[in-house]
Design a protein around this nucleic acid. Structure first.
Length: 813
RNA sequence: GCGAACGUGGCGGAAUUGGUAUACGCGCAGGACUUAGGAUCCUGUGGGGCAACCCGUCCGGGUUCGAGUCCCGGCGUUCGCACCA
């Protein structure tokens, strides 16, 4: 293989450099001393039995290209990887296979490790972690304890989402359109006692930081998704007195206090605590029946919109504080107990749902906003909802105002009258973290009859997951952990009396909400994250991952970081300085997934073409941040590109660079640098291909040009570049060289081609000196034959001249 | 229904502030070298026309000397969220 003319053999080259990187610890930065730390993070995978598919590889390659680029620019890049191996996904698969997850997961991790190594990722394997490792989940439990101590973890009995297939509770975020995100089963409502994290307390800060560019520079699509999820809305809480008993008031939340005069009835959620007391005797039977039906209903039919409205009157009334008139009180399942106050003032004239309800049950409709072309007495056929348009009507002193103005005025009036106040609501719910399953970190709490719920002391962590044989969940709502009596009973850490353990495990999303804090400190046992390492490496410099985690993982990670910041453990409150969402690789028009049966396994492609060609191909097939359709049709293109560079390396000699090549060379360096910074990998590769074409057309074999071509190709084809670099006579890794710099003066071409238009239509081009004057360009343009034809017998009215771009003759007959 | 993104050759996709539409790659056609080539190299490749030229970025309008790009109105695709008051 020392012949200069040898053929590029990816299998051999890749094996050689993977071994050498490991031996020389090429990808292991010195975490304690590096002067220019750059923390390059990508979302760690869940180690499934099927292994990595092309979609996963696309994401990891994109992250790796960025890390390698940064390293060539002189940063000390730390690019860790790990495994998110706890959770229902792993457990269900293990149950299906009849293999214990503790046995199955290490096998899968071994396979993932093989694949991730093979793709040539610049991973710092000495810092690999798995969330299932007691040395890791000890600290997951520690975080729970810290939140508990600060009152941010609490237990409450409440309505929860119960998945009848997975037999566990789900967070609201894990329920998609009323079905389990994982298995698709319809989710039921159950009343259970669960652990929650008080993320709602952070809603305002989580929202505000999204706009603080000094703390976080994120893809706008991701920020938008988080804003929507947090769901801030401004409105007012209004207290309505009950007509039959004015001492009792019912609070409602509305975003439209301006429409107060139009509230013609009130609706309570069926679960509202005042329902029983307010129900008139003759309505008792109907109300009880409705409440029972609502409770039995699954959340899908309860929550999915567009179904016909149902409800029953309580036989009671409330006084509208604006009009002083009594309005009937109803219960209906379209009002949700979890949001606002669980009660609404219904304004059928200006709300779609209230309108549908009023129409169905013949309730009064009172217009209080007249839209364009409407008057105070125009019948309501379609609720008018715009707050920027229209005028208030039938609203006493507020008539004539624009709704937006009336909003403020009526809120002020409510405050003066003492019947309400302006308030802010969030859609975000507290994070339910209890899971009645086996495969997760046990929640570190002990229940003692004398001391209550006691957190397990730090020096007794981790609470090890007992090696149960039968891990199957059941319908009881109690975790399988309760079956291990030896584990279940424990002495109270405070008084020493016999007590029992919490048997729920925590949500997998807690495991992944802090893993980036652990990576730099995996070799340190005393702390979850070493203070000095954390100071040097965090917050994360660049995080690249899928947008499917925009509201789950990314929001939880922000919350945990913020809580640890407030507890004094971290100096920063936002964990990811920069986040970029990559696109999705689809196959035949749909997302690649096992259930759809369209998963493409990368191994066979790597066998045939080599990892470097495959990486380059994946990055070339479309814009990284948009993804694309996977088809293997074009893979030979990137391979030919590498072959051509290989030949150039074999032929490289010191020599002169032709003038035309010099310009292209420097332009390419400028372009590729800018494109990589923006993750525009496909156009960066196109630019490199153009340079190769130019160099070959000019028969240029100059060593300097070829060397820099190799350096710029290195992020995409790392093993290939290392081999070329060695063949060019270097003994150090190409990644310890430098990123090519360009000379701006040399990117400028001396001659420019200017388009010549007549009435905006291009009729020809002229090539002129770069600094040619307008007169010279115009003369050259007019000399062009085709242009002359179009100017003949016309009058030139105007000439538009854009230097170095075009000259346009505006003519008429 | 609400929100976001998008619509360019046979295909994947390029196109600073509006300024030569189709870069780069695949595919295809012709040629060279070859016993052979699914290897490599060269040439061509948006549609129509012998040509001058005409038509072309989902459709219809508009602004402009000039629109893939900006504005208005449609149609279509994809992805989120879905009775949140």
């Amino acid at each position: 293989m020392d012949s200069a003319n040898s053929v590029y053999d990816p299998g051999q080259v890749e094996a050689k450099w993977q071994a050498r990187w490991r031996e020389r610890r090429t990808n292991e930065p010195d975490l304690d001393h590096t002067p220019r730390p750059f923390y390059n993070l990508m979302m760690f995978p869940y180690p499934s039995a099927e292994g990595l598919h092309v979609g996963n590889l696309f994401a990891f390659t994109g992250g790796d290209v960025f890390g390698r680029f940064k390293r060539l620019q002189g940063w000390n890049v730390f690019e860790p990887i790990g495994f998110d191996a706890f959770g229902i996904h792993s457990e269900n698969f293990a149950l299906k296979m009849g293999i214990h997850p503790a046995e199955l997961i290490p096998r899968n991790i071994a396979n993932f490790t093989r694949q991730l190594t093979r793709m040539g990722g610049m991973f710092a394997w000495e810092h690999v972690l798995s969330t299932t490792d007691p040395a890791y989940y000890k600290w997951t439990q520690w975080i729970f304890v810290q939140l508990f101590k600060r009152g941010l973890a609490y237990k409450k009995k409440g309505l929860v989402n119960w998945c009848p297939t997975d037999k566990t509770v789900l967070a609201n975020e894990q329920v998609i359109a009323g079905a389990c995100e994982r298995c698709g089963s319809l989710v039921e409502q159950r009343v259970l006692e669960q652990w929650y994290f008080r993320i709602t307390e952070y809603a305002a800060r989580l929202l505000a930081n999204l706009d603080d560019k000094s703390k976080m520079d994120w893809s706008e699509t991701t920020a938008v998704a988080q804003r929507n999820w947090i769901g801030r809305s401004e409105g007012a809480e209004v207290r309505f007195a009950v007509a039959e008993n004015p001492d009792v008031t019912i609070a409602v939340y509305t975003t439209r206090p301006d429409t107060l005069f139009g509230a013609t009835f009130m609706v309570l959620a069926p679960e509202h605590p005042l329902v029983i007391a307010l129900t008139a005797p003759d309505q008792r039977v109907a109300v009880d029946a409705y409440r029972a039906a609502a409770a039995a209903q699954d959340l899908v039919s309860r929550k999915v919109g567009d179904k016909e409205k149902t409800g029953v009157p309580l036989g009671a009334a409330a006084i509208n504080p604006a009009t002083g008139q009594p309005i009937p009180i109803w219960i209906a399942d379209y009002v949700l107990m979890e949001y606002g106050t669980g009660a609404i003032m219904a304004v059928p004239a200006h709300d779609e749902r209230d309108f549908a309800f009023a129409t169905r049950f013949g309730l009064p409709i009172r217009r209080v906003v007249a839209g364009p072309g409407e008057a105070a007495d125009t019948p309501v056929t379609d609720p008018f909802v715009d707050v920027d348009q229209g005028r208030m009507v039938n609203s006493g002193d507020f008539d004539g105002m624009v709704p937006l103005e009336a909003k403020r005025a009526i809120t002020r009036w409510l405050e003066l009258a003492g019947t309400g106040h302006g308030t802010t609501q969030y859609r975000l719910y507290d994070w339910c973290i209890s899971r009645q399953r086996y495969w997760g970190p046990p929640i570190p709490i002990v229940y003692c009859e004398s001391c209550g719920a006691v957190p397990v002391p730090e020096d007794q962590l981790p609470v090890l997951l007992p090696p149960l044989e039968d891990i199957r969940p059941d319908d009881s709502g109690i975790s399988p952990l309760a079956r291990d009596e030896q584990w279940y009973y424990v002495d109270c850490p405070e008084c020493g009396k016999r007590a029992r353990r919490e048997t729920d495990v925590s949500d997998t999303f807690l495991d992944s909400a802090w893993y980036f804090l652990r990576y730099p400190s995996t070799d340190i046992d005393e702390h979850p994250f070493d203070a000095e390492r954390t100071r040097r490496w965090l917050p994360v410099s660049s995080y690249i991952g899928g947008n499917e985690h925009a509201v789950l993982h990314l929001l939880y990670s922000r919350f945990v970081t913020m809580a640890l910041h407030d507890a004094g453990f971290l100096a920063f409150e936002e964990p990811f300085r920069q986040f970029r969402a990559h696109g999705l690789i689809v196959k035949d028009g749909t997302k690649m997934s096992k259930s759809r049966g369209n998963v493409v396994v990368p191994d066979e492609y790597i066998n045939r073409w080599g990892a470097d060609t495959f990486r380059t191909y994946l990055m070339f097939l479309g814009p990284f941040q948009e993804g694309g359709d996977f088809r293997d049709a074009g893979i030979s293109g990137p391979r030919r590109f590498l072959d051509k560079i290989w030949d150039l390396v074999s032929a490289a000699t010191p020599g002169n660079v032709p003038a035309g090549v010099v310009t292209k060379w420097h332009q390419t360096k400028q372009r590729v640098t800018a494109e990589l910074e923006l993750l525009h990998y496909n156009t960066a590769i196109a630019a490199l291909m153009e340079l190769v074409n130019t160099v070959r057309d000019a028969d240029c074999t100059d060593r300097a040009v070829v060397s820099e071509l190799v350096q710029m190709t290195a992020p995409f084809a790392p093993h290939f570049a290392e081999e070329c670099w060695e063949r060019l006579g270097h003994s150090e890794s190409v990644f310890d060289s430098h990123w090519p710099s360009f000379d701006a003066a040399l990117t400028v071409e001396s001659a420019v081609t200017v388009a010549v238009q007549v009435n905006g239509k291009t009729r020809g081009t002229v090539t002129v000196d770069r600094d040619a004057t307008e007169a010279v360009v115009r003369a050259a343009a007019e000399a062009d034959e085709a242009v002359r034809r179009h100017l003949a017998s016309k009058t030139i009215r105007k000439v538009v001249y854009v230097p170095q771009r075009l000259v346009n003759f505006v003519v008429s007959d």
